[in-house]
């Protein structure tokens, strides 16, 4: 019985499956913002970013995915750089939440798990049709609760927390050739045959208010552009991920922190 060697990260798989399964062919991209939300204008805002969940690999002809270390490493670095440069919403400062130890690590893991459940719920029951809750068709009321203030403490203070997840499986040459061959064969067979897609590029991002814990904004896209393996592509990806992100009106009276 023992020796079932690789058990993939179940939580990730669940999120990813939900992200993909919940997206009907006609609506790949959706964003929502908490109604009536506006960034405060009395001070510059600081956004804390959770370590982006980034996966990059290749998709073989038969559809199996192979993780690629270099692509993943580059993608994470590129996305982090692009997020900092993008200054989402006009944030004065973007900081990454450092790895934690002990109790702080447990708090971090707890909120990651809760955000996972909230994100999953928004994807499956709010943003996309099919399994939507009728009372949630409008509005955008989700929260991690005011306990999130603890997260800000562990990262030297912050006003908002940003979660970013991307998954990129680049169709290999073999996959692209199979796609072409399948199309030819299907045409030859009078239109009867499989449709082969090449590559898989999905992602989502969410913003949390670190005082109330409320989910302010979320955006999900099952067919994203921008090649995260290079800096320019990652910048385009981040722009897409941050689509419809709320923008802070000009900060009155308060100068940015020194």
């Amino acid at each position: 019985m023992w020796g079932l060697r690789d058990m993939s990260s179940i939580r990730w798989a669940v999120l990813c499956a939900a992200a993909l399964a919940a997206v009907p062919a006609l609506a790949q991209e959706k964003a929502a913002t908490k109604p009536g939300f506006a960034f405060p204008t009395d001070h510059a805002i600081r956004i804390l970013v959770f370590r982006p969940e980034v996966r990059a690999g290749s998709q073989s002809a038969g559809g199996a995915t192979t993780p690629n270390a270099e692509w993943t490493r580059n993608a994470r670095t590129n996305i982090m750089t692009a997020l900092t440069a993008a200054r989402p919403g006009g944030a004065a400062e973007v900081a990454f939440i450092p790895d934690a130890e002990g109790d702080a690590a447990a708090v971090l893991a707890d909120y990651r798990a809760l955000f996972g459940a909230v994100a999953n719920t928004v994807l499956q029951h709010r943003l996309f049709k099919g399994d939507r809750l009728p009372t949630k068709k409008t509005g955008f009321e989700y929260s991690l609760g005011p306990g999130v203030a603890k997260l800000a403490e562990t990262a030297g203070g912050g006003d908002y927390a940003l979660f970013v997840t991307t998954n990129d499986q680049y169709g290999s040459t073999g996959r692209k050739l199979l796609q072409l061959a399948a199309a030819l064969a299907t045409t030859a067979a009078g239109g009867i045959g499989p449709t082969v897609t090449s590559g898989q590029h999905s992602g989502y991002a969410g913003l949390i208010d670190l005082k109330t814990g409320d989910l302010i904004w979320m955006n999900a896209d099952a067919r994203m552009g921008g090649d995260v393996r290079d800096a320019d592509g990652a910048a385009r990806r981040v722009t897409q991920l941050l689509e419809d992100f709320p923008v802070q009106a000009s900060v009155a009276a308060a100068a940015p922190k020194p």
């Binding site: 399964a21 099919g130 399994d131 809750l133 009728p134 499989p194 082969v196």
Partner: peptide, 15 residues
């Protein structure tokens, strides 16, 4: 071929 993810069984919600 299972090249696309199967759509989930559609569950419904009512007010």
């Amino acid at each position: 071929l299972a090249l696309l993810l199967a759509a989930p069984a559609v569950a419904g919600w009512k007010v």
